[in-house]
Structures are given as C-alpha cells and as structure tokens.
C-alpha cells in the first residue's frame, strides 16, 4: 500500500527501508523520484548509480536501471555507463563521505570534464552507516565518534567545490524545502553537463545525538530557519549572513559537454579516413 509515485518508482518489496526513524534520506529519495516523474523521463532510460554508505542504499530501493558499486567510485562507474550509452540519463546518488572523501578525486575530475551526469548528494554531515565518524562536511567543533573533543577540520562546501572544479551546474537543497529541492534536481537533470545538487540531510541517530541537536523535527526546523535564498542573503548585513546557508543555484553555465566533444572526434576521424 503506497502512493502512486512510490508504487511506480520504488521496489516496494524492499520497503520499508533500513534508514533510521526520521532519517532525511527517505525525503530526498522521494524528491529524486518526484523530479524524474515531473520531467516525464522514460523510467527504463534512467540509470541510477551509487557507491557505499547509507545514501547509496537508494539504488536498491529505486526502480530504475541501477548499479550499487564500490566506495567512492560511483562517478567512475557512471562515467563508463554514460560513455557507452550517452542516450541514458545517468544519475549518481552519494553520501557526503562517499563523494567528498573517498571519491573526492573522482568528483573534481568528473566536474572538470563536464560529462553529462547528475550527482545528487545526500549530505548528512557524518558517516552514518559505520557509526558516526566525522566526515568532510562535519562543521568545525562538532562531535563525532572519531572527534570526541570536537572536529578540528573546516568543512567542505560540496556545491562550491564542484563549481570551482568546473561543474557547469551546482546547487544546494535541503530536506525541509521539498518543492524547491525537487525543482533544483529537475534543473540539474535537464542541464547538459556535469550537475551536482548538494542536499542537506538529517541524521538524528548520529549527528543529531552526538551534537545534542535534537531529533529529526528539531533538525528540520533548524534547516527551515537557517536557509535563505541568495536574494534574501544579499539584503542581510554580513554578520547576520554568516550564520545562514544559501539555498538555490550556485553555478549554471554552458560549457562544452564531454560525450558530445568525444563524438565530434569520432566523426572527424571517420570522415578523414573514409
């Protein structure tokens, strides 16, 4: 028994999922399904690739062509799929640790290459599956099982990182702002080139508990209060802006796309050599 959307895009025999009560990944996974549904893309033409981690489980639950691959390497597998079958809509779902730590190198180079795949990051600021170790996006001073006295490192902003590395589309969404995040995912899928949507997640079990940030409801309420649009941020004085997170597009550019450029070389050589 499930809604039409879930019925169509999820493997219901695998539900309910293993994610904890209040985990934001469920909300984000529905957003991905809804975005694909809104775009009216043929389900058979979508290839969903994931690595390892809580977020990566989504590839098992969603009813598309799916691949559950090795830790951090989802983008590498996705690149292979896209090169072999440029007609497929290739989407990567990854967690913050998966994409920015173990797979950080794949991320920056795929962004630089600007290959037409869409990466959706379920960014919950922690390694959930392995027991709450701090990740590359854990804010400075926050706690994790491997940071019992507070995290010394400064966090990555994955959206800015991808944009700086050359991704032609980069955006930031949240679990709380559902319609806005669905729209950002839709635009990312439609976009020709490397698109990354960094979605701020909610991990009440580890991040919330370790940092005394309350349960899922408190964490979602904080997202509601702390996220503003770029236009709103522009109007705020700088000292107030620092505590806010900006929701929406970070970059949207028209750069040459890798599979198209590759095809041009093939066409040129075929013509030259008869």
């Amino acid at each position: 028994m499930a809604s039409k959307l879930i019925d169509k895009y999820m493997r219901e025999d695998h539900l309910p999922h293993i994610w904890c009560p209040g985990c934001g990944h469920g909300i984000l996974m529905r957003n991905v399904a809804k975005a694909i549904d809104n775009l009216g893309i043929n389900q058979e033409k979508v290839c969903l690739v994931s690595g390892i981690g809580c977020a990566a489980r989504a590839a098992g639950y969603m009813d598309f062509q799916t691949m559950h691959t090795t830790h951090g390497r989802a983008i590498a597998f996705a690149t292979g799929v896209k090169m072999a079958r440029p007609d497929l809509e290739v989407i990567v779902i990854a967690g913050d640790g998966d994409i920015a730590a173990i797979g950080g190198n794949h991320l920056i180079h795929a962004a630089r290459r600007n290959i037409n795949i869409t990466v959706i990051v379920f960014n919950n600021d922690i390694y959930g599956m392995t027991g709450g170790q701090y990740s590359p996006t854990t804010p400075t001073g926050d706690y994790g099982t491997t940071a019992p006295y507070g995290n010394l490192d400064r966090p990555f902003d994955i959206g800015l990182l991808a944009a700086a590395a050359g991704a032609s589309y980069s955006a930031k969404g949240t679990c709380y702002h559902v319609p806005q995040t669905i729209k950002l995912i839709e635009d990312g899928i439609k976009h020709k080139g490397f698109a990354l949507i960094d979605c701020l997640g909610v991990c009440p079990t580890y991040y919330g508990r370790k940092n005394k940030k309350g349960g899922a409801v408190e964490m979602l309420t904080r997202q509601k209060e702390n996220m503003i649009t770029a236009e709103q941020a522009y109007k705020l004085p700088i000292h107030e802006r620092e505590s806010k997170v900006i929701l929406g597009k970070i970059a949207e550019n028209d750069f040459p796309e890798f599979t198209e450029e590759y095809q041009k070389i093939i066409d040129r050589l075929v013509k030259q050599n008869g």
């Binding site: 499930a2 809604s3 999820m10 909300i27 319609p179």
Partner: peptide, 14 residues
C-alpha cells in the same frame, strides 16, 4: 505530511 514523510507511510490518494 506526504512530502516530508521519510518512510512513505502517509499520503493523499486521488
């Protein structure tokens, strides 16, 4: 409720 339920346990049916 439907759009934020992480477990798809509540929804509106047409």
């Amino acid at each position: 409720c439907e759009m934020r339920c992480p477990d798809y346990a509540i929804y509106l049916e047409d």
